[in-house]
Measured scan of single mutants.
Amino acid sequence: KELVLVLYDYQEKSPREVTVKKGDILTLLNSTNKDAWKVEVDDRQGFIPAAYLKKL
Protein backbone atom coordinates (compact mmCIF):
# COMPACT_ATOMS: atom_id res chain seq x y z
CA LYS A 1 0.00 0.00 0.00
CA GLU A 2 1.12 3.53 -0.68
CA LEU A 3 1.59 6.10 2.07
CA VAL A 4 1.33 9.88 1.99
CA LEU A 5 2.58 12.61 4.31
CA VAL A 6 0.24 15.47 5.23
CA LEU A 7 1.99 18.79 4.54
CA TYR A 8 -0.61 21.13 6.11
CA ASP A 9 -3.57 20.89 8.48
CA TYR A 10 -6.84 20.37 6.61
CA GLN A 11 -10.37 20.72 8.00
CA GLU A 12 -13.03 18.77 6.12
CA LYS A 13 -15.52 20.94 4.28
CA SER A 14 -17.96 18.20 3.24
CA PRO A 15 -18.93 14.67 4.39
CA ARG A 16 -16.79 13.21 1.58
CA GLU A 17 -13.63 14.75 3.03
CA VAL A 18 -11.56 13.99 6.12
CA THR A 19 -9.75 16.19 8.65
CA VAL A 20 -5.98 15.73 8.98
CA LYS A 21 -3.04 17.33 10.77
CA LYS A 22 0.34 18.33 9.39
CA GLY A 23 2.76 15.42 9.82
CA ASP A 24 0.12 12.68 9.69
CA ILE A 25 1.03 9.65 7.58
CA LEU A 26 -1.97 8.13 5.83
CA THR A 27 -2.77 5.24 3.52
CA LEU A 28 -3.39 6.46 -0.02
CA LEU A 29 -6.38 4.72 -1.60
CA ASN A 30 -6.70 6.57 -4.89
CA SER A 31 -4.67 9.31 -6.60
CA THR A 32 -6.16 9.21 -10.11
CA ASN A 33 -7.84 12.60 -9.59
CA LYS A 34 -5.11 15.25 -9.77
CA ASP A 35 -7.01 17.64 -7.47
CA ALA A 36 -8.21 15.43 -4.62
CA TRP A 37 -6.78 12.15 -3.38
CA LYS A 38 -8.70 9.51 -1.43
CA VAL A 39 -7.08 8.48 1.85
CA GLU A 40 -7.91 6.47 4.94
CA VAL A 41 -7.89 8.12 8.37
CA ASP A 42 -8.79 6.10 11.48
CA ASP A 43 -11.08 3.69 9.57
CA ARG A 44 -12.70 6.58 7.67
CA GLN A 45 -12.21 7.11 3.96
CA GLY A 46 -12.38 10.49 2.32
CA PHE A 47 -10.79 13.05 0.08
CA ILE A 48 -8.11 15.67 0.71
CA PRO A 49 -6.75 18.22 -1.79
CA ALA A 50 -3.69 16.65 -3.44
CA ALA A 51 -1.67 19.82 -2.77
CA TYR A 52 -1.84 18.98 0.96
CA LEU A 53 -0.20 15.58 0.47
CA LYS A 54 3.18 14.17 -0.56
CA LYS A 55 3.72 10.56 -1.61
CA LEU A 56 6.30 8.71 0.48
Rank of each mutant, 00 (worst) to 15 (best):
Y52D: 03
E40V: 11
P15Q: 11
G46R: 05
E2R: 12
K13L: 12
F47E: 07
E17P: 09
A50K: 08
G23M: 03
W37Y: 05
S31L: 03
P15Y: 08
P49R: 03
Y52F: 12
V4Y: 06
Y8K: 14
L3S: 06
L53D: 03
P15F: 08
V4S: 00
V18S: 02
V39W: 02
D35Y: 15
V39K: 00
Q45I: 15
D9I: 04
V41A: 09
K55N: 05
S31G: 10
K55L: 13
R16M: 14
I48F: 03
L28W: 02
F47S: 04
A50Y: 03
T19Y: 05
V20N: 00
F47N: 05
L3Y: 15
Y8W: 13
A36K: 13
L7C: 08
V41L: 10
I25M: 04
V6E: 01
A51D: 10
V18G: 02
K21N: 07
Y52M: 08
K38I: 15
K55Y: 08
A51F: 13
R44K: 11
R16H: 14
I48Q: 02
K21E: 04
I48C: 10
V20P: 01
F47K: 01
L56A: 03
G46Q: 07
K34M: 12
S14C: 11
K34Y: 10
F47W: 15
Q45C: 13
L53K: 00
L5C: 12
D24P: 01
K22N: 03
A51E: 13
D43Q: 11
K54W: 10
D9E: 04
K34Q: 11
D24S: 11
L3Q: 12
K55A: 06
I25H: 02
S31T: 09
Y8T: 08
Y52W: 07
N30E: 15
Q45F: 08
P15H: 10
P49E: 04
K22S: 07
K13S: 10
Y8G: 07
L7G: 01
S14N: 14
K54F: 11
L29N: 01
K1F: 12
N30F: 06
G46V: 15
V6T: 02
D9N: 07
L29M: 06
Q11T: 14
V41Q: 07
K38A: 09
N33M: 09
N33L: 10
T19N: 06
S31W: 10
K1V: 13
R44T: 07
E12K: 14
G23A: 02
L3P: 02
G46A: 12
Q11W: 14
N30M: 08
S31Y: 08
K21Q: 08
K21S: 09
Y8F: 13
K54D: 08
G46L: 15
T27H: 10
E40F: 07
D42I: 08
Q11V: 14
T32G: 10
V41C: 09
K22D: 01
V4P: 01
K55D: 05
V18D: 01
K38M: 15
G46I: 15
A36E: 15
E40Q: 15
V4Q: 00
E17I: 05
W37T: 01
F47V: 08
D9V: 04
K22E: 06
R44G: 06
R44V: 08
P49H: 05
Q11A: 12
P49D: 05
K38Q: 14
E12F: 12
T19M: 04
L5E: 09
L7F: 02
T19S: 14
I48P: 02
V20T: 03
V18P: 02
Y52V: 13
V39M: 03
K38L: 15
D43M: 09
E2T: 13
Q11R: 11
P15A: 11
T27F: 11
K54L: 13
V20W: 10
A36W: 15
E17H: 09
S31D: 14
A50H: 06
Y10R: 02
Q11S: 12
K38R: 12
L28K: 00
I25T: 04
K13T: 13
N30Q: 09
E2D: 11
Q45W: 12
T27G: 05
N30G: 07
E40S: 10
D42Q: 11
D24Q: 15
L26N: 01
L3A: 05
V6Y: 00
V6A: 06
K54Q: 14
A36Q: 14
K22W: 04
Y52Q: 03
L53A: 06
V20K: 01
E17C: 09
F47C: 13
D35T: 11
Y10W: 06
D35N: 13
G23S: 01
I48Y: 01
V39R: 00
V18Y: 05
I25Q: 03
L28E: 00
Y8L: 10
D43V: 06
V20F: 07
V6D: 00
D24H: 06
N30H: 07
V4H: 00
K34A: 13
K21D: 02
Y52E: 03
E12T: 11
W37I: 02
G23Y: 04
A51H: 14
S31V: 05
D9C: 07
A51L: 11
K1E: 08
I25G: 02
G23F: 04
K13D: 06
S14K: 07
E40P: 00
K38V: 15
Y52N: 08
A50L: 05
E17N: 07
R44L: 07
L7A: 02
L53M: 04
V20Y: 09
L7V: 06
D42R: 11
V41M: 09
K13E: 07
I48T: 02
V18M: 13
N30P: 04
K55H: 07
K21M: 08
E17K: 05
V6M: 01
S31M: 08
R16W: 15
G23D: 04
L5Y: 09
W37P: 00
L26Y: 04
D42F: 10
Q11Y: 15
Y10E: 00
P49K: 04
I25L: 06
I48E: 03
Q45M: 10
Y8V: 11
Q11G: 07
K34T: 11
Q11F: 14
R44F: 08
P15K: 09
E2I: 14
